[in-house]
């Protein structure tokens, strides 16, 4: 039997070598009619705030998304303020006087070619990031950034995290709620799907903690699982009406930076 073991090792190595290969394939994915994509954010800091409107394209088209110009875009809050957004450049609409204030509910109304898209979002109170720390990965020697913050008690809280490495925004979607640890210290580890951008000593990590509402959380939660192992992938649940893709997010945001030791 002892003689067999090296052969076994070789065969296992060999079979894992031959197994699991990836290749780019061409699929007939058909075409889809262009869909309206709206993305709007209101923060609890000074404006102007931006609403972007574009259209979707076919899968095998190049990654340029047609801007939607000439839309009527209006944001109002429940304190009687209203702002008609100006188109600063094609598809980019900006506010002029509106100020994001925690506790207020903001309503977005967009009119394009006779179609009306509406959304509303309520801005919660800000939550401070207590600290940034690092966690070692289970495999290999990668380290992941993590934050710790105190969840406010007695209300449902929803969070979205955005993080930068050396001022480069990372694309992963990170959201969490307090369903499992309401009123407690929440520790959140950012585990990127794409492990190409490994953290190394001296990198500056910046994390934004957005406190947002349930509709926005649901959007990013469902967007984050797209392309996973789901047997039935679907478009994220948007908080905008009338079949528009995208989201409208009124959030209060806090940030913290730290250098990787």
């Amino acid at each position: 039997m002892r003689r067999c073991i090296p052969i076994l090792v070789i065969l296992i190595v060999l079979s894992s070598f031959l197994s699991s290969c990836k290749k780019v394939i061409q699929l007939d994915l058909g075409t889809s009619s262009p869909h309206i994509v709206i993305q709007g954010d209101i923060y609890d800091h000074q404006g102007p705030y931006i609403v972007q409107i574009s259209k979707s394209v076919n899968f095998y088209d190049s990654n340029t998304y047609p801007a939607v110009s000439g839309a009527s875009v209006n944001i109002s809050d429940n304190a009687g303020n209203s702002d008609h957004l100006k188109e600063a450049s094609p598809g980019i609409y900006i506010t002029s006087a509106l100020q994001g204030v925690p506790g207020r509910t903001y309503t977005l109304i967009v009119k394009i070619d006779g179609q009306t898209y509406t959304a509303s979002s309520t801005m919660p109170d800000p939550v401070e990031i207590a600290s940034i720390y690092y966690q070692k990965s289970l495999f290999g020697n990668t380290i992941f950034p993590a934050i710790s913050f105190k969840d406010p008690a007695n209300i449902n809280n929803y969070y979205r995290l955005i993080y930068y490495i050396n001022n480069n925004r990372q694309n992963d979607i990170n959201v969490t709620d307090d369903k499992l640890n309401a009123g407690q210290i929440i520790n959140y580890v950012i585990r990127p799907l794409d492990t190409d951008n490994k953290l190394i000593a001296g990198d500056v990590v910046t994390i934004y903690l957005e406190s947002t509402d349930k509709g926005v959380y649901e959007y990013f939660r469902t967007a984050g699982r797209e392309g996973g192992q789901s047997a039935s992938p679907a478009n994220p649940t948007s908080n905008i009406s009338n079949g528009s893709l995208g989201y409208f997010n009124a959030c209060s945001v806090r940030t913290l930076s730290a250098m990787v030791p």
Binding site: L27, T31, K55, S56, N58, D61
Partner: peptide, 9 residues
Amino acid sequence: TFPNGKYEI
């Protein structure tokens, strides 16, 4: 279910 389009967010 495969995607038949794409957009940017």
